[in-house]
């Protein structure tokens, strides 16, 4: 699987591999020998297939900032797990299932209402223990499957959030 990078509005896939002590960049079906050398003044030299350019590089988290040829760029590395986790459509990820059988103590939301991550939607009681069912992401309540006072079985659906938009 290639790495995914974002520069301005473009998404680019590339990979880095070693060839002995040297490196190659794999991009767009081709292999380019590459090297990065630090310079004493804090700048660096990037070499791609024999072309050398002076750069200044600074990194913060998943963003790499590069000054190259009089322009400043921000190159973001996109974690494949993040990117792919959001790419699904409506799924059971949108439904809160009862962790155990119990009774609904209180419902604090209505269908159509907007909730934010971490917001308590309802409180259930089971084995003398109260549990808050909390919104796991921002979203809109699509369906309330239970009401206050109702009892339910384990894995019964409690609340459905409207499917989040595909990335």
């Amino acid at each position: 699987m290639f790495h995914l990078f974002a520069i301005r509005d473009e998404k680019l896939s590339a990979a880095l591999a070693r060839r002995g002590r040297a490196y190659v960049l794999l991009h767009d079906g081709r292999e380019y020998p590459v090297a990065l050398r630090q310079l004493p003044d804090g700048a660096a030299e990037i070499e791609v297939a024999g072309n050398v350019a002076r750069v200044v590089i600074a990194r913060e988290g998943d963003d790499t900032f590069v000054r190259l040829g009089g322009e400043s760029y921000a190159v973001r590395w996109i974690d494949p797990l993040d990117r792919l986790a959001h790419a699904g459509g409506a799924s059971l990820d949108d439904v809160a299932l009862a962790p155990m059988p119990g009774t609904v103590v209180a419902v604090q939301i209505k269908p159509g209402e907007r909730v934010t991550r971490g917001q308590t939607m309802m409180v259930i009681e089971s084995m003398k223990l109260e549990t808050a069912i909390v919104a796991w992401r921002d979203g809109v309540i699509e369906t309330l499957h239970v009401s206050a006072g109702q009892t339910f079985e384990r894995a019964a659906p409690l609340v459905t959030l409207a499917a989040s938009r595909e990335e």
């Binding site: 590339a14 590459v34 040829g69 190159v75």
Partner: peptide, 18 residues
């Protein structure tokens, strides 16, 4: 050429890629 240089510079500095 600049695009390649940016990808290369990033790949060679980013810990996950390295």
């Amino acid at each position: 050429d600049a695009r390649l240089a940016l990808l290369a510079a990033t790949a060679l500095s980013h810990p996950q890629v390295l």
